[in-house]
Amino acid sequence: MKDTHLPCFRIKPDFYDALAHHLAADFEFWASLVGADGLCRLQLVASPPENTSSGLPGIPFKKLLLPPAEPLWSWDGKTFQSPDPQPRRAVFGVALCDLQALWYLDQVFAEDPLYQERRQHLLIVGGPCQPADQCRCHPDESPLAGDLFQTHDHIWSLSNRGHAVLKELAKWLGATVDRPLPKPLQVPKPRADIREPLFRASTGSAIWQQSSQSCLACGVCSAVCPTCYCYDMIDHTDLDGKSTRQRVWDNCFFSTHAKVAGGHDFRPDRAARLRFRFEHKKFGFGPLRGRPSCVGCGRCLKACPVDIDLDQIAEQLNAGEA
């Protein structure tokens, strides 16, 4: 979605009360809140927050679309059961980078019925953000998904669904204005990219060995990444014979990720695994090849206990240091 001509409206006082009231019948409300322990989490809230820029939640909203352990079906010996229907959720204050990530996930899971069902049940409301030290987004680079985008005095509709919501609330809307989405100011340092031939040439480079030496393979970088979507399939059987197949977050740093029947491992060490993660984040795979899947949210940088920085690796490769 190009955001240059998104319909934007000035809003009248009480618009947000009216919005909350309008949505309350159908939706749970979710927003990011900073807890007493200093961590920001996306969580269920009683009403939409007035101030939407609480920072990025440590675990992005992908947890609502691809939960860490999601049942696909269960079987009790007689019948198959589908997962329970999903609640409808309105998520408020989603930052631009996460809206870009949503667009990316939407492409990857375009043909996944479970994802699509959850997605249909989400109403995503974007909001302005405050760039933090580790932010590396390119706000204008990739398309974004979502339904609405709110500031304290304007609202944009980003989708047909968003448009339909605003139509219902026309009474609380003022004039249409020609206004671009508010972009984050002064992103400290945008994401570093690298050309693919240079990356290809780096196959045997010592840089992968060096950079991955300190990696603990804890998996945190992809747990927090809004566009990491690998999963493993795990079957679980209760004592009463009911079996459930779940998809569970997996991770390319884990020892089992590229291991296949017979014991061969396509990426047998951390160097190969780091290079693979780098490749996925910088170039994407499949039909999306060539478009970075990294939206520069900076979460991995912040969360990695040993400060492994994909951008620093890109810069080193670009500078011919490898």
């Binding site: 747990a223 059987t237 991770n251």
Partner: peptide, 30 residues
């Protein structure tokens, strides 16, 4: 899990993912 898997004639999946993964997905403070 062990006896559940066994009741269908298989061993349970051996895990190799670290505690951190569960810790972070529970959104605990590191």
């Amino acid at each position: 899990d062990f006896f559940g898997a066994l009741s269908c004639g298989v061993w349970p999946t051996q895990r190799d993912a670290p505690v951190c993964m569960e810790c972070r997905t529970r959104e605990l403070r590191c």
